Simulated assay, not measured.
Amino acid sequence: MDSEADEITSLVGREVYSNNGVFVGEVEDVRLNLDTEVVNGLALSALNPDLFANEATGEKGVIIPYRWVRAVGDVVLINDIVERYESTEEEGEVAV
């Protein structure tokens, strides 16, 4: 379990980009489901103002669902944030 914990904490501080190369933000924290022992979200800060300028994101940032993550390496690559964010709002889910 210690190696898994190290992997999870190594996400903090990584930059997050959409799959089309747009900077989204930086991972500030990881949201865990302790019952199932899985990561279910990433808390992002230092958000790209072009993406979130007109959105009510709170003071610190947004939480994106971990299912949006496509790859983790030197950076975190996620599905296109703008399309996902807008479709989530239309479905009535709250992702922020």
Rank of each mutant, 00 (worst) to 15 (best):
M1H: 14
D2H: 14
S3K: 13
E4V: 02
A5G: 06
E7C: 11
E7Y: 08
I8W: 04
I8R: 10
T9N: 10
T9Y: 10
S10C: 09
S10G: 12
L11N: 02
V12L: 08
V12K: 11
V12S: 05
V12G: 02
V12W: 03
R14F: 02
R14M: 09
R14N: 11
R14I: 05
E15C: 13
E15V: 11
V16S: 03
S18K: 07
S18E: 10
S18G: 15
S18C: 12
N19T: 15
N19S: 15
N20D: 15
G21A: 12
G21Y: 06
F23L: 08
F23I: 00
V24T: 07
G25Q: 03
E26T: 12
E26F: 00
V27K: 01
E28C: 14
V30K: 02
R31P: 01
L32R: 06
N33Q: 08
N33C: 05
L34G: 09
L34Q: 11
T36D: 13
T36G: 10
V38Y: 04
V39N: 05
V39C: 06
L42P: 01
A43W: 05
A43I: 08
A43V: 09
L44V: 04
S45D: 15
S45G: 15
S45K: 15
S45Q: 12
A46K: 13
A46M: 09
A46H: 01
L47T: 02
L47G: 01
L47H: 01
N48W: 01
N48K: 08
N48V: 03
P49C: 07
A53K: 13
N54K: 09
E55W: 04
E55T: 07
T57C: 12
G58F: 01
G58T: 06
K60S: 15
K60N: 13
K60E: 11
G61Q: 09
V62Q: 04
V62K: 01
I63N: 00
I64G: 03
P65R: 04
Y66E: 09
W68Q: 06
W68D: 00
V69F: 00
V69M: 09
V69T: 01
A71P: 06
V72G: 03
V75A: 15
V75Q: 14
V76S: 03
L77N: 05
L77W: 02
L77K: 08
L77Y: 03
I78W: 00
D80H: 14
D80P: 14
D80V: 00
I81K: 00
I81D: 04
I81W: 05
V82E: 12
V82T: 10
V82A: 12
V82D: 13
E83M: 06
E83S: 10
E83N: 11
R84A: 12
R84L: 12
R84Y: 10
Y85G: 03
Y85K: 05
E86G: 03
S87R: 14
E89P: 02
E90L: 11
E91P: 02
G92T: 05
G92Q: 09
E93Q: 13
E93L: 15
E93K: 11
V94T: 15
V94I: 15
A95C: 05
A95T: 05
